[in-house]
C-alpha cells in the first residue's frame, strides 16, 4: 500500500508519481487531494490528485521541487513507499454543465486541472484550456490537456512555446469576445499570484471563477486550522471547506502572507537538508 509504482521527471523539477493506493483510487474525484509524508521526520504535505485509475488501483501525483519536503518526496523511487498517504480529502469539484468553460492552468496547476477538465468535458462542456508556463521546457501534459480540450491555448513568458505573455491575456480576450455569454465558468489553478490575477481579470465580466487554494496544512482533516483563509470576510478551512473557492471572494493578500510564514524556517531546513544529502 502507498507504494510508488513509477516515477518520472516530466520537466526539470516536476515529477510525476504513479502510486498504488486502491482505496483512494476507488473514491477519488476531480478536485480532491491527499496528504503525504516522505519519512518519519517529514512534514505532512498536501498534493492534488492529478489522476486516478480505479481499475488499476492507482493515483497520479505531481510534485514540484521547492524545499526540503518536496525534495525528500522527489528522492523516493519506484518500489519505495510513502511514510504516510491519506485521502481522498477536500470537496470534489462541482461538475456541472456550464456551456463553455475556460480552464486556466499555470505551471504545476496543470496537474489538478487535468481531471477536472476531463470531467467537465465528459459532462458536455465546451472546454477552452489556457495552459501557461515560464518557458517551453516547463510545460508538461500538453498532450493530455489537448485531449480533453476543444481549444487549447499555450502561453509562455518568453514566447518559446505558444503565445508570448501571461495566461491572463488570452483569458481577457476570450471573455471580451464572448458576447453571447456562453462561457459559464472559469477555473484558474496555479501559483497563488496567477489565481489572483485571473480572478481580477474575470471580475469585470462577472463570470463565476473557481480557484483551488494551496495553503499550508498539517492534518488535512479540519482539526488544526492552519490552512484557514478569509472567504467573503469569513474564516474558512481549505482542507474541509475547500480546496476550491470563489476566486472573487478570496482575500488574496492575507492568503499570500500566510504562505510566507515559515519562509526563514524553510530556508534553514533546506540548507541543512542539502548539506546532509551532499555528505551522505
Amino acid at each position: 500500500m502507498s507504494r510508488i509504482v513509477n516515477k518520472t521527471e516530466l520537466v526539470p523539477n516536476i515529477h510525476e508519481m504513479l502510486v498504488e493506493a486502491p482505496q483512494i483510487a476507488a473514491k477519488a474525484l476531480p478536485g480532491q487531494f491527499v496528504v503525504v509524508m516522505a519519512d518519519e521526520t517529514g512534514e505532512r504535505v498536501p498534493l492534488t490528485i492529478a489522476d486516478f485509475d480505479r481499475d488499476q488501483g492507482t493515483i497520479t501525483l505531481i510534485l514540484m521541487v521547492v524545499g526540503t519536503s518536496s525534495r525528500k518526496l522527489a528522492r523516493l523511487r519506484a518500489g519505495d513507499a510513502f511514510h504516510a498517504l491519506l485521502g481522498p480529502l477536500g470537496h470534489p469539484s462541482e461538475i456541472e454543465d456550464y456551456g463553455s468553460i475556460i480552464m486556466v492552468a499555470g505551471g504545476v496547476g496543470t496537474a489538478p486541472i487535468y481531471p477536472i477538465a476531463r470531467a467537465l468535458r465528459d459532462k458536455g462542456n465546451r472546454v477552452i484550456t489556457i495552459q501557461g508556463a515560464r518557458n517551453r521546457d516547463l510545460l508538461f501534459w500538453r498532450d493530455r490537456m489537448a485531449a480533453v480540450s476543444d481549444e487549447h491555448i499555450i502561453t509562455t513568458d518568453d514566447g518559446s512555446a505558444g503565445r508570448k505573455g501571461l495566461v491572463t491575456e488570452p483569458l481577457r480576450e476570450r471573455l471580451a469576445a464572448d458576447n453571447g455569454k456562453t462561457i459559464g465558468c472559469v477555473y484558474a489553478i496555479g501559483p497563488t499570484i496567477m489565481m489572483k490575477c485571473c480572478s481580477d481579470t474575470t471580475r469585470p465580466f462577472d463570470v463565476r471563477t473557481i480557484v483551488s487554494l494551496n495553503t499550508i496544512m498539517v492534518d488535512g482533516t479540519g482539526m488544526c486550522g492552519g490552512c484557514r483563509v478569509e472567504i467573503g470576510g469569513e474564516t474558512r478551512f481549505t482542507c474541509v471547506d475547500g480546496p476550491e473557492f470563489d476566486g472573487h471572494l478570496v482575500n488574496w493578500s492575507t492568503m499570500m502572507a500566510r504562505q510566507r510564514i515559515y519562509h526563514t524556517s524553510e530556508q534553514c531546513s533546506l540548507t541543512r537538508y542539502l548539506d546532509e544529502v551532499s555528505t551522505s
Binding site: V218, D219, G222, M223, C224, G225, G226, R228, V229, E230, T235, F237, V240, N251, T254, M255, A257, R258, R260, I261
Partner: peptide
C-alpha cells in the same frame, strides 16, 4: 473537531495559531 477562532480583525496573521495547530 474544528477549532474556533475569535472572528476578530487580524486573526489571519502569521503567528496566530489555533491551539490544535500549535500543539499538533
Amino acid at each position: 473537531g474544528l477549532p474556533y477562532f475569535l472572528g476578530i480583525e487580524g486573526e489571519q496573521l502569521g503567528g496566530v495559531y489555533a491551539a490544535n495547530e500549535y500543539l499538533t
